[in-house]
Design a protein around this nucleic acid. Structure first.
Lengths: 239, 239
DNA sequence: CGGCTACTTGATGATGCTCAAGCGGAGTGG
DNA sequence: CCACTCCGCTTGAGCATCATCAAGTAGCCG
């Protein structure tokens, strides 16, 4: 792994409309490194403004409360990047980052990154759109945390993870099911609460457990539960 | 009010290093408007990507839960601006905005805004730094919501509002005290909880009520309470 | 003075975190 | 191939927190 031949930044979406020549040049200025699962890539409050490009694998932006609780802020997959904030404003890192899978990561110095951003309009426009997207996501999460219950936040997270079932039309599947502690850290709650939320869904016939996945027959029902328009026993004399 | 002579954008920090000629030109392309207290400036989910510059007064970025609860996302004061997100990504508004004071606001069409951003490097760099700052604030708030109790979030909000006392050195004052419902919406809790939190501070001798303000003698103590390193009765046999 | 709004305080109940015990499945080593 | 162990999941019981409802008080303005 970490073959030299992998050391390419063409796939990074931020660089989509950058001249290949320039990309080659950036590649040469990178510090390349392979990280193992759960390996720490950077720590909150640390100095340094390197920007990291995820070429293969995926990482988790995460913070820890003083009690040791883990709060997941975002999952960054291959072709994306992280560490822009410190590069942009020169402040210490706002969160820690750990590898979720074996990941190949390229680090670029802040100076070079900012040079690129200043020089290439499309790059800075893409960066702006990305930051805007992040802010929208954060705002939504603040709303969720402020107005919804823990179970509902779990349902929302499940909805985010769920994919349409290729077989059954209109049904959703979460497969493979991630570890419950991951769901918990994204929904800002505990493993136990995630268990209970899912168990209740199964008990109410909204979800169905099968081997290593979870199926929902009725997306709308789950959405209603998640958003608190909850009349569950609304009209159809179910049960 | 809303005198023509007020219709200037020189004070807007985003434009700090823009050529005065260009600023004049932008001013001419603005839709100027005065808003009264509590007047609605824009609604969540509405279309349109105008960017708004607050020339005088201040506004609140806010969202409402389906139960009618109000969640304050940010306060935007004079010389700042809002509405960039929709201009950048073309999506509907992510939140509503209401005037906190009588405010003079200048609206610029998204096309012109984006043109300016593309054309003036300094502008886009400032914009990037601003978005980065917003993201950091949001992340902190998500951490607070996820890991702290309601009382602690109120204490943090009080710390944000508190200014060093000009007289007593080392003491802090919040003056004038904002309405408790405002504090509640920034701390994502209820008026009643804000009352209780403050009453407890007073009862514990951490804070002191005086007419229309609140004083703290010991900033460190309040900070400890807010961040849960709470041993209050830690060593000094207070009480 | 009467009425409004903001604040205060108590009682109550639901929610969900914590601790604790039990269970199942997947590796691992004998 | 079987025990053993580790880890993740499940479930229960107890308890603290906090939102909600309700009633009462204080200050302000006409």
């Amino acid at each position: 792994m970490a073959e030299k031949s992998e050391r390419r930044l063409d796939t990074i979406r931020l660089f989509a409309d950058l001249d290949p020549e320039v990309i080659r040049d950036v590649e040469r200025h990178c510090r390349w490194r392979e990280y193992a699962v759960n390996e720490n890539i950077l720590d909150r409050d640390s100095q340094g403004g390197d920007v990291y490009f995820v070429v293969r694998g995926s990482v988790l932006i995460v913070n820890y409360s003083f009690t040791g609780r883990e709060i997941a802020l975002a999952r960054i997959g291959a072709r994306s990047y992280f560490g822009e904030l410190a590069a942009i404003d020169g402040q210490p890192r706002s969160a820690s980052v750990v590898a979720l899978e074996p990941s190949l990561v390229a680090a670029v110095e802040p100076k070079l990154f900012n040079l690129l951003v200043e020089k290439h309009r499309e790059l800075s426009m893409r960066l702006l759109r990305r930051l805007a997207r992040i802010i929208r996501t954060c705002d939504d999460r603040i709303m969720d945390l402020s107005t919804l219950g823990a179970h509902q936040r779990v349902y929302l997270e499940l909805l985010r993870l769920a994919q349409p079932d290729p077989d059954d039309d209109g049904a959703l599947v979460v497969s493979p099911m991630p570890a419950q502690k991951e769901i918990a850290s994204k929904a800002s709650t505990t493993r136990e609460t995630v268990t209970r939320a899912i168990s209740q869904l199964v008990a109410d016939g909204v979800a169905e457990r099968s081997h290593k996945s979870l199926r929902f027959h009725d997306r709308a029902r789950l959405e209603r539960l998640a958003t608190s328009l909850d009349p569950d026993w609304g009209e159809e004399g179910a049960r």
